[in-house]
Design a binder for these strands. Structure first.
Lengths: 247, 247
DNA sequence: CGTCAAATTGACAAGGTTCAAGGACCGTGG
DNA sequence: CCACGGTCCTTGAACCTTGTCAATTTGACG
């Protein structure tokens, strides 16, 4: 019954392409442009600043593989992670990061990135980008709500569900589980908690039968049930041309 | 020595125009277009949903007067305010709100709004809009950092400083003070605190000589000193200051 | 097998919330 | 002009969630 991840096969659809296709169906020119771009991918090693890495700031990128994050560091060492960038996510798209100074983009794993094909090449591509941007925005709002109004326990579950949903689009969820290359300390810096407390809440969730974590792989036991309990409606994003996208 | 607010005079520069001019110098066509738009302003009464108010969703607006906020309400009644929209701010500009479903735009005072002139009318106008958008983004990041990593006391000061800076651009700060039409409860929903604790922290700030509040008017005693103490660098928008991040 | 980073655990302190009860302020109607 | 009602602000005390400190254990890897 278990479907193995197909990402090893050379014929598999790349996660990034899969995600964009899921956001909005692509036409042939769009797919061709993306495939061409993907073939020109390069990689950025972990813990390196992404944007300043050789390719000039302002150029838009498509992340093909790996986890990155927008980070802000305070003078006294406190750190806040704004959110993560996952395979299929766009970077520097529309004043999203070239605009904001005080946010740094760092990879938590080695990243594979490629230039982002020009939206003008296809209306379907443009639309997919727009939906992606809208989702970015929704995720920021979700982050604010988590930090401001959810308890530690709720934050953990809500965050994991968000990641689950996002990775699902890219086909990176297998058997209700996904790889999450984050330490509990990093999770704490994301959710406004200490690593110690993150640990406790994860234990609690484990004991409650919500999830299992083993060797960097998160397994959500009943994602749909958990989501409903956590009050996560489907993230409905209304694209500019006004038909709704369900996640 | 005290300069009185000039907003009563019919010759005064409207705050919104003033703000945009401050973001990026405007040329004559831009000013003319804005002045024309401002003359066609209408008002929206308090506590009404802004976007659904007669003028169709997707139309961009310029807020001329009043305070509004992006709000998200959880199923159990908890409320989180994402951020405020102040005079001179743009609404629905570029996928900022037409994109995101689960955020409502509500006025806390009566609002005066007008249609937003087309950016194509002037490059300087386009640039001002871009800067405004970038600031919106920076403010969202600031909000995340506040909620995730600042103490209650720091959140209050940081937030008030942000408002101070934003209203300064619109010329709405007089003698280091500004009008803030928010209850402590609303402040709590913004900063992830209870109204009781907001009250206590305000008292503390008052006793510390940081501020005075009287009849909806906030007076910051030494905004620059407070800002430096609170670790608020000036919000630099177009300067991608990229330094490596320690992890 | 040794090493190092990450995870885990317990005891305790601190920060923030909750509950509950006044008190101040403001517009309204008598 | 004053009494009234409602909303918001203020304050205290008990309580709970989360943070801090300090081990100890686990697991990956050379």
């Amino acid at each position: 019954m278990i479907v193995r991840a197909a990402s090893q096969s050379s014929f598999a659809i790349p996660p990034a392409l899969r995600r964009l296709e899921a956001l909005s169906p692509l036409d042939q020119p769009a797919r061709a442009a993306l495939t061409a771009a993907i073939s020109r991918a390069w990689s950025v090693s972990a813990r390196r600043e992404l944007v300043s890495e050789g390719h000039r700031i302002g150029e838009s990128l498509l992340v093909l593989d790996g986890w990155a994050a927008r980070v802000r560091q305070l003078a006294d060492g406190r750190r806040q992670i704004m959110g993560f960038i996952l395979p299929g996510d766009l970077v520097g798209h529309c004043g999203f990061d070239r605009a904001v100074a005080m946010t740094t983009l760092v990879g938590f794993t080695a990243l594979s990135v490629c230039p982002l094909p020009d939206a003008a090449l296809s209306p379907t591509l443009e639309r997919a980008y727009a939906v992606s941007r809208a989702i970015d925005e929704a995720n920021l709002m979700a982050q604010i709500t988590r930090l401001g109004r959810l308890s530690a326990y709720e934050r953990i579950l809500d965050f994991l569900l968000e990641v689950f949903e996002r990775l699902s689009l890219a086909g990176l969820v297998t058997d209700n589980s996904f790889v999450m290359p984050l330490t509990q300390e990093t999770l704490g810096d994301t959710l406004g908690l200490t690593s110690v407390h993150v640990n406790r809440m994860l234990q609690q969730a484990r004991r409650a039968g919500e999830l299992n974590i083993h060797r960097g792989r998160v397994h959500l036991v009943r994602p749909d049930v958990t989501a409903r309990a956590a009050g996560r409606g489907p993230t409905r994003v209304f694209a500019p041309s006004c038909h709704a996208v369900e996640m």
